[in-house]
Design a protein around this nucleic acid. Structure first.
Lengths: 293, 293
DNA sequence: CAGAAAATGTAGTAAATCCTTCATTTTGAT
DNA sequence: ATCAAAATGAAGGATTTACTACATTTTCTG
């Protein structure tokens, strides 16, 4: 890439007017050249296919193909760095006594920032709307996903009510989904290695007409296929331990979303809760606005 | 792009094994498809050109060209948004439909960064050493603190063993602390409004000679007085909901610290776990290195 | 303004790429 | 273990794309 721009810089004086226009595209939007044919670049610059190719020759390339290949390679290189992992890989060889703490927290920050960049409002809004719309909700998360699942269950139950937690085969899907007339929503949290029981529950829920919101690692997750809404979560590995901060942060977005759209009294209740919490700093009490237990 | 991923998600179950491999490329590195020919994608996935095209057909496209064009368009769209970064700076005036998500995540990032600045190695190292030294550990966290407590209990049990979770008055302190000769450590997680039972347990544990590691909001917390080690955690409010990411991140530091100092085989086990997770992307299995349930 | 030289566009050819067909291998069920 | 069905790979035809030769337009100079 820099190789291309360097050639343009050196040869720019010798280029014709049309070729200078093409140069501008090559420098500012190289991805256009990587993707489109010489003909299209010609149309785009109000020149012709032949001029584009002559432009390549002027830069010393054998033709359009060679220039395009070089740009493609360069773009793939920067694409490779996508994802927050690379950033801290360099130092990860030696986890020493002095730096592991920074590494852990910085990794969490990196993944949160990555999640922020990739964030899809529309998707989350649909998920949040589905939660608001649902009459009854079942949260499912087995194995270690039980922990975020239980939190989500407790929180949703506190701010919305009518939420259930699927804990295992004894309470089977039929038990939860008997009232067919209701608008049911199943929220499934699952990551590799996916428990077969979670997949089974999701599928049977789907076949019973419930909506499914999947919180998982990607489109290829086995629970994604049956899902109506898919929230993709990219976390440090292994998810069971290092993934919690990122996962909870995104779950929190859901909760906040529901709270914003939901009854204002919930928000007031929480503000009230905040005030109490901060004023009575070390208050000791048994009652709780959030009946977590 | 989302259109492509959506089709993959819906059709994934109907795809053949080779096609699923191609799916992984399409989802994770769509730019590869935008740039390379069908033949190259075939080579890259150890399949063939024909299989790549059949994969396109399975998704409902007329062929590779159509799929490629759609990915190209999508990639150009996101490229368009590059340049002047329109990041939603913490304009905290109003939590609107459009920016609350950014606010939530950015708040988490801000608190993690704050925690990083304030981080006291010495303190954490003492806490980690106390965990390593302890023969038996009791984790206590009531009400909604039960969630991080259970996670800590499960994780410590997996990498160290001999860890117990105090769940309520029925299992009282005496039950846990009968073996006086052993080196007991009580890890207490508690935030306002502090459950009286947590305080009680901590105090009686202390009087029975156990060491106490308190994870709480500050020096004035009622459990801080009896604590031998105090880890101060500052989180967004309310802790029960918004505090989870920060809290888990710091707990994670503890875990990583124990792992670093602890047996090397645990770390190897976890690395192995990582490899399996990433290689068998959508693997479905029942066994788990972490016996969380 | 005229003529020449450079630049540009058009059209045709060669090459690469896509896509279909058929033979072979793999998978799954009885 | 056997057969049928499905999946895969190899090869040839169809289409698109890159490149080149020639015709036309534009630009520059005296």
């Amino acid at each position: 890439m820099e190789q291309v721009k360097e050639r343009i810089r050196k040869q720019f004086g010798n280029l014709t007017a049309s070729q200078k226009i093409i140069s501008k595209v090559a420098v500012d939007k190289p991805s256009l050249i990587a993707i489109h044919t010489a003909k299209k670049i010609g149309e785009l610059t109000n020149t012709s296919e032949a001029t584009v190719i002559r432009f390549c020759h002027s830069l010393g390339y054998s033709g359009y193909s060679e220039l395009q290949d070089e740009i493609k390679k360069a773009l793939l290189m920067v694409d490779q760095r996508k994802g927050p992992i690379q950033k801290y890989r360099a130092t990860e060889d030696a986890v020493t006594r002095d730096n592991y703490a920074h590494q852990v927290i910085e990794t969490d920050i990196a993944f949160l920032q990555h999640g922020l960049e990739q964030f899809d409002y529309e998707l989350y809004q649909q998920a949040i709307d589905s939660i608001i719309r649902a009459n009854r909700i079942v949260v499912v998360g087995l194995r270690w996903c039980h922990i975020p699942a239980k939190w989500l269950f407790s929180t949703l139950n506190a701010i919305k009510g009518n939420t259930h937690l699927y804990t295992g085969a004894v309470d089977n899907a039929d038990y939860f989904l008997t009232e067919r007339d209701q608008e049911w929503l199943v929220i499934a949290i699952s990551f590799p290695r996916h428990p077969a029981e979670t997949i089974g529950l999701v599928q049977s829920a789907k076949s019973l007409g419930a909506k499914v919101l999947a919180i998982t690692e990607g489109e290829l997750s086995p629970i994604s296929q049956a899902a109506d809404y898919l929230l993709k979560v990219t976390t440090p590995q292994p998810v069971a331990t290092s993934g919690m901060p990122t996962l909870f942060s995104l779950l929190n977005v859901l909760i906040k979303g529901v709270m914003v759209h939901d009854a204002a009294n919930v928000q007031k209740r929480l503000q009230h809760y905040d005030e109490i919490s901060s004023k009575l700093y070390s208050f000791v009490g048994e009652e709780d606005d959030f009946p977590f237990y």
